[in-house]
C-alpha cells in the first residue's frame, strides 16, 4: 500500500515536538532493542578473547578486531559440514513440501473432490500441531524406519509443518486465479495436469516464492527435531551443532559461539533481504486467510 493512502491524513496538523515524542523516540527505542542483539553478535565475534574477558574495556567497541574465531570455526570445527547439512536439508524439504503442497492445494481448491472441504480444514489444523508434542513418538518412528541419525530423518519430517503452511498459502493464491482461464483450457482439450503446470503455476509464481522462502527459513530455523533425531556431529545442522558441539564442558568460547550464530543467521537474513515483500505477504497471508 502506498504512503498516500495511509490512515494518517491529518498528520500535517501535528507539531514537530509532538511527532518526536509520539513517533520518533518510541520507534528509536524499539529499533535499538530489536537490533541490539545483532550488533552484539557482530561485536563479540570479532573481539579477541582478552578483550572479551576484560571488565575495564568499553564492551561496545572493538580495539583490535580479529578473525580468530572465524578461523577456529571454519577450520577447527565441523561447522562447514553443519552448514552444508542445513542447506541440503532446507532445500530438499522445501522442494518436497512445495511439490506436495501445489498438488494438494490445486486438488482442494479447484478439483473440489468429495470431502475436499474437510481435507482443507484438517490441513489447517495440521498447521496448528506444534513439533514439541510430536518429537517423542516421531523419534520412535524415525528409529523404526532406520532413519535415525541421518539427514533424511529431517528432510522427511520437516514437510509435516511445511506442507500445511504451504498448502494453506497456495490455496489462497489459487483462489484468486479466475476459473474462466481453466474452463477455456478444458474446452481446448487440456488435461488437469497441463492446466496446473501451464496455467496455474505461472500465475501463482509470487505465491510459490512466498511459500518457498518461508518454508526455507522455517526449516533452517528448526531445532527440536534436529536435536532429537541426530546424534553424530557430522550430521548436525547449524543451530544444533553450535549449541551442542561448541560448548566444551564449562568453557564457553563466546567468540566462536557468536561467530557461529552470526554465520548461521546470515544466509536466511540475506535471502530474506532479497524477498522481503514475498516473505511478509507469506507470513501475513497465512495469518489472514
Amino acid at each position: 500500500m502506498s504512503d498516500k493512502t495511509d490512515a494518517a491524513g491529518m498528520e500535517y496538523l501535528q507539531s514537530l515536538p509532538r511527532r518526536w515524542v509520539t513517533l520518533y523516540i518510541p520507534l528509536g527505542v524499539f529499533m535499538f532493542v530489536l537490533l541490539f542483539p545483532f550488533y552484539w553478535m557482530v561485536m563479540t565475534s570479532f573481539k579477541s578473547n582478552e578483550e572479551l574477558m576484560s571488565k575495564a574495556a568499553n564492551p561496545f567497541w572493538i580495539v583490535k578486531p580479529t578473525l580468530d574465531h572465524f578461523e577456529k570455526l571454519l577450520f577447527r570445527t565441523e561447522y562447514p559440514q553443519w552448514l552444508w547439512n542445513t542447506i541440503l536439508i532446507s532445500v530438499l524439504s522445501t522442494f518436497i513440501s512445495l511439490f506436495a503442497a501445489v498438488l494438494a492445494a490445486y486438488a482442494i481448491e479447484r478439483l473440489r473432490f468429495r470431502g475436499s472441504r474437510q481435507v482443507g480444514l484438517s490441513i489447517f489444523f495440521a498447521y496448528l500441531v506444534p513439533p514439541s508434542i510430536l518429537f517423542i513418538p516421531l523419534a520412535l518412528i524415525v528409529f523404526k524406519l532406520g532413519l535415525f541419525d541421518s539427514v533424511w530423518a529431517l528432510i522427511l519430517t520437516y514437510p509435516t509443518f511445511l506442507i500445511p503452511f504451504c498448502t494453506w498459502l497456495l490455496m489462497g493464491y489459487f483462489r484468486t486465479i479466475p476459473y474462466e482461464l481453466e474452463e477455456c483450457a478444458l474446452i481446448d482439450g487440456a488435461t488437469r495436469w497441463q492446466i496446473l503446470v501451464k496455467i496455474m503455476l505461472p500465475l501463482a509464481v509470487p505465491g510459490l516464492i512466498s511459500a518457498g522462502i518461508f518454508a526455507f527459513t522455517l526449516s533452517w530455523n528448526e531445532f527440536i527435531y534436529a536435536l532429537t533425531f541426530i546424534s553424530s556431529s557430522e550430521n548436525k545442522t547449524v543451530p544444533v551443532g553450535v549449541i551442542t558441539e561448541l560448548v566444551e564442558g564449562d568453557v564457553y568460547h563466546w567468540g566462536a559461539l557468536m561467530a557461529g550464530a552470526l554465520l548461521g543467521s546470515l544466509p536466511v537474513a540475506i535471502l530474506y533481504s532479497f524477498f522481503v515483500e514475498y516473505y511478509v505477504s507469506g507470513m501475513t497471508g497465512a495469518v489472514k486467510e
Binding site: F30, P37, M41, T44, P239, V240, G264, S265, V268, Y272
Partner: peptide, 25 residues
C-alpha cells in the same frame, strides 16, 4: 519499507542462534 524490513529480523533468524546472543547478554 526499510524500517519495516529490519524490524522483522529477530523473527527470521534462527531462535537458537539469537538465543546465544541473549545468553551472552
Amino acid at each position: 519499507s526499510f524500517i519495516r524490513a529490519i524490524v522483522l529480523l529477530p523473527f527470521i533468524v534462527p531462535t537458537a542462534l539469537s538465543a546465544i546472543a541473549f545468553w551472552w547478554i
